[in-house]
Amino acid sequence: MTSPARPPLRLAVVGHVEHVTIGRVAAVPRAGEIAHLEAPRWFPGGGGGVAFWQLARSPAEVLLYTALGDDEAGAQVERALGAAGARVRVHAARRAEPHTRDLVLLTPDGERTIVVVGEPLHPRADDPLPWGALAGCDAAYFTAQDPAALRAARAARLLVVTARRREALARSGVAADVVVGSRLDAREVSARADYPMPPAALVLTEGAAGGIIETAAGVERFPAPPSPEAVGGAYGAGDSFAGALVFFLAAGLPLRDACAAAGRHGAAVLRAVDPRDGQLPLEAP
């Protein structure tokens, strides 16, 4: 007798989505210089946006909690997010201000320099969004700023929080299952002891060196996948790793295996200028 089919995963992203314009430059301009952006393109990106696009490449139902500005940039972001697929549900608060724009400059080595125009727009717990639906999610990824919204996200079975939101996590009074960040980013490098309510695990990537996992039992390493031969750009690699990690943990992979699997998805983004072009499909193990 065959086993009943497992229902699809239900995953959530809570955070900011920017209107991102990305393109290549010969070099980042110095004071007084002019840089010409080659082959510019735009897409909904940012920490929440890139993780959302990665999760949208899975068989899961994906809920996005975000905020939108009241200008044409906000309208463009809303239309693009809504076209991400039939399994996507976008819950957006409205702000009476322009939507945040990012300008991303990619140099020939693929490194990115980001100029953020305005403050990122984050959802808040007092926004009239269906926060109760988070209790039915297998996992939630949090990259917003409101501690009360983080407490709402804690209702999901698994809570993964970006290390960029250490302050919000401390103020929320809840413990995350996983905090994820980059050991190469000064905004994100941390230790479990830095959190008043230490997460069950802290995952920090180290680019081509792989990364570390810190738990109460100690520190262990996970490997990095082979780097792609052709490098398009580094924008979105870390956020794609985080999105993939959320998926694999929700699907039941042990943490070290989930990190190794997510590493392949983070590295894949390096092949492309627009991270969506490099993101790999997510499949349950």
Results as ranks from 00 to 15, higher is better:
A170N: 12
A149M: 08
R166A: 13
A155K: 14
A155I: 09
A153L: 08
L150A: 09
R157I: 03
A155W: 08
F142W: 01
R166F: 00
V174H: 03
A140H: 05
L158A: 11
R171G: 07
Q145A: 15
A155E: 15
D138I: 08
L159T: 06
E167W: 00
A140M: 06
R151N: 11
R154C: 09
R166T: 02
V160I: 14
A170V: 13
A163N: 09
D138Y: 07
A149I: 07
L158S: 10
A163S: 13
L158P: 12
L150M: 13
G173D: 12
A139V: 07
R164A: 10
T143L: 01
A144L: 06
D146P: 15
T143K: 00
G173A: 14
P147H: 13
R164P: 01
Q145W: 11
A140G: 04
V160D: 05
A139I: 07
F142S: 00
A163T: 05
A144R: 07
R154Y: 06
A153V: 10
G173Q: 14
R151Q: 15
A149T: 08
G173H: 14
A140V: 03
A139W: 03
R151D: 13
E167I: 04
E167A: 11
A155H: 15
V161Y: 02
D146M: 09
R171W: 11
V161H: 01
L169I: 01
R166H: 04
Q145P: 01
V161T: 03
A149F: 08
L159S: 04
C137K: 04
R154L: 08
A168E: 06
S172N: 09
A148V: 02
L169H: 00
Q145D: 13
A152G: 11
A156P: 12
A156S: 15
R171V: 11
R151L: 10
V161I: 02
A139R: 08
V174T: 09
V161Q: 02
V160W: 02
G173R: 15
D146I: 07
R171A: 15
G173K: 15
Y141N: 03
L159P: 05
A140Y: 04
R166W: 01
D138N: 12
R171Y: 10
L169C: 01
Q145F: 08
L150S: 10
A140S: 09
D138L: 08
A140R: 04
A149Q: 11
F142C: 00
Y141S: 05
Y141E: 04
D146Q: 11
A149S: 13
A139S: 03
R154I: 09
A139H: 06
V174M: 05
R157P: 02
A144F: 06
R151W: 11
P147Q: 13
V174K: 02
R171H: 14
T162A: 14
A170R: 14
A140Q: 06
L150Q: 10
A148H: 12
R166L: 07
A170Q: 12
L169D: 02
R154S: 13
V160H: 03
V174D: 05
A153R: 08
R166V: 02
L150N: 10
A148Q: 14
A170D: 15
T143M: 00
Y141R: 01
A148G: 07
E167T: 11
A163D: 10
T162V: 11
F142K: 01
R164M: 09
R154A: 15
R164F: 04
Y141P: 07
R157Y: 04
A170K: 10
A163F: 06
